[in-house]
Computed example of a mutant assay.
Amino acid sequence: MSNYYNENAKAFFEGTVVADMSSNYTDFLAKLAKGSHILDAGCGSGRDAKNFKDLGYEVTAIDASESMCALASEYMHQPVEQLRFQDIDFKDVFDGIWASASLLHVPSEELPEVLERFYKALKAQGVLYASFKYGDFEGDRNGRYFHDLKEDKAKELFTKAGFHVSKMWITSDVREDRRDEKWLNILCE
């Protein structure tokens, strides 16, 4: 992982903490009972983790950036563990995993193992939400590594890891200055 998020934590926090992602919560939360345990994987600012917590869910939040963990911990009034996806070792712990705009930083050669780790971390009947920038690009973009996906490749990757892809949809970025950016949203069980 580059040092981008440590070096730009404050600006990233301020630019994302107010983004309204609630429209993407609907299908994910519909599959979870109140009080279910959610892992916010790559929580960034802690925006979604805090919203889930405020809605009555138990939330564990992780991020690879030490600086983002500090800001998110303060924002959501709960410790955020510094942990890379490649080091996750949970077994049957979570009812849901929320990976909004985070798995897209995992290189293609490492993503299958990371998805298998996520699959093992979910309880039976667990649900996973993930989003990727829509496209075929893979590499450095403005100081960060990105792995964009389209539907066919996403379905192949998630299916090979054991998931059943129940829904995929494309959305525009919710931030006003980035409306032209497209996102692939994936819901798996």
Rank of each mutant, 00 (worst) to 15 (best):
S65G: 07
A99H: 04
L115E: 08
R84S: 13
L149D: 07
I186L: 01
D95M: 11
D20L: 13
Q125N: 14
N8W: 02
N185L: 00
A72H: 13
A124H: 13
Y129F: 04
K120T: 11
K31W: 00
S102N: 09
F132R: 06
R47M: 07
I88H: 12
S166P: 00
V80H: 04
L55A: 12
D89R: 15
E66C: 05
R144I: 03
H105M: 02
K91Q: 13
K155S: 14
V106D: 05
H37Q: 13
S102V: 06
E151D: 13
K91I: 09
Y75W: 01
G44D: 08
A41V: 03
D54Y: 09
F52W: 03
D148W: 11
F158Y: 15
A130P: 04
D95Y: 08
K150F: 00
E181P: 10
R175E: 01
V106R: 06
D152C: 10
V165P: 02
L104R: 08
E7F: 03
G15T: 01
E81Y: 07
D148R: 03
F85A: 12
L111W: 00
S2C: 07
N8H: 04
H164M: 15
D40I: 07
G96F: 05
L39I: 08
L103E: 08
F132C: 05
H164S: 15
D173L: 07
F158L: 11
T159D: 08
I170K: 15
H37L: 14
Y134T: 04
E109K: 14
D152A: 15
L115C: 03
C43S: 02
G126E: 02
M76R: 05
H147L: 12
N6F: 08
K167T: 14
H105Q: 05
A72E: 10
W183A: 06
L128P: 00
K150G: 03
Y25M: 07
Q82A: 12
S65A: 06
L29S: 11
G15V: 00
L71N: 04
Y4N: 02
M68W: 00
A64I: 04
Y129V: 04
T159N: 09
L184A: 12
E66F: 12
F132H: 09
L39H: 12
F85S: 15
N6C: 03
I97Q: 00
K153I: 14
F163V: 01
I38Q: 04
R47L: 09
F158V: 11
K167M: 08
D136F: 02
L157Q: 13
A72R: 12
F13C: 03
A124W: 09
